[in-house]
Simulated scan of single mutants.
Amino acid sequence: MPNPNTGSDQAILDLIAYFAKRDSLLLPRLLQPPKKSAKRRRFSDSDLLRPIEAARILKVRPKTLANWRVSGVGPKFTRLGGAIVYRYSELQAFIAKGSRASTSDKGDAQ
């Protein structure tokens, strides 16, 4: 009896077999629980943080933090030699200064 799976039918079956095999290899990786991220470090008020760490705490990009330094609207920073650092307490104060009770609340600005 002749094989009914000839030509393009065989190519389709080959593709199905290929993707089934590929997906079965990927599936175990997809079902694994996500890798645990490193534990967040707790900072004390006097800790000095690099701009990357400060940006992560403020949930902004480091470039945004740099722009804020230039325009004077961001948290207070210190220059140690050529390095820019932020005190953790200054980041907390900056966040607290931005707290508002409502959208019409002007906060500390008078």
Rank of each mutant, 00 (worst) to 15 (best):
M1R: 11
M1W: 13
M1G: 10
P2H: 08
P2C: 05
P2G: 07
P2S: 10
P4L: 07
T6F: 07
G7E: 02
G7H: 09
D9R: 05
D9P: 04
Q10G: 00
A11G: 02
I12Q: 09
I12F: 09
I12S: 10
L13Y: 10
D14C: 08
L15G: 00
I16E: 05
I16V: 12
I16P: 06
A17F: 13
Y18H: 02
Y18Q: 03
Y18I: 06
F19Y: 07
F19W: 06
A20G: 09
A20E: 14
A20K: 12
A20P: 02
A20M: 08
K21M: 02
K21F: 01
R22I: 01
R22F: 13
R22E: 13
R22Q: 09
D23M: 05
D23R: 05
S24K: 02
S24G: 07
S24C: 00
L25A: 14
L26I: 14
L26V: 09
L27M: 08
L27S: 09
L27Y: 07
P28I: 00
L30W: 02
L31Y: 07
Q32V: 01
P33F: 12
P33R: 04
P34S: 01
P34E: 06
P34A: 02
K35F: 02
K35L: 10
K36D: 05
K36H: 02
S37W: 11
K39N: 12
R40E: 08
R40G: 03
R40L: 08
R41E: 08
R42V: 09
F43N: 10
F43M: 02
S44R: 13
S44M: 15
D45I: 11
D45E: 11
S46A: 07
S46N: 09
S46G: 14
D47Y: 06
L49Y: 11
L49P: 14
L49N: 12
R50C: 15
R50Q: 14
E53M: 04
A54P: 02
I57H: 01
L58V: 01
L58I: 07
L58K: 02
K59Y: 07
K59N: 15
R61F: 13
T64Y: 15
A66F: 13
N67Q: 14
N67D: 14
W68L: 15
V70C: 11
S71I: 14
S71F: 11
S71W: 04
S71T: 14
G72K: 06
V73K: 11
V73L: 09
G74P: 07
P75N: 03
K76P: 13
K76G: 04
T78N: 13
R79G: 08
R79K: 12
R79D: 14
R79W: 10
L80K: 12
L80M: 08
L80V: 04
I84P: 10
Y86W: 03
Y86H: 04
Y88Q: 10
Y88W: 03
Y88M: 06
S89G: 06
S89Y: 09
S89F: 00
E90F: 08
E90H: 12
Q92C: 15
Q92P: 06
A93V: 15
F94H: 12
K97V: 00
S99L: 06
R100H: 03
R100T: 01
A101Y: 06
S102F: 00
T103P: 13
S104P: 01
D105R: 01
K106S: 08
G107H: 09
G107T: 04
G107I: 02
Q110A: 08
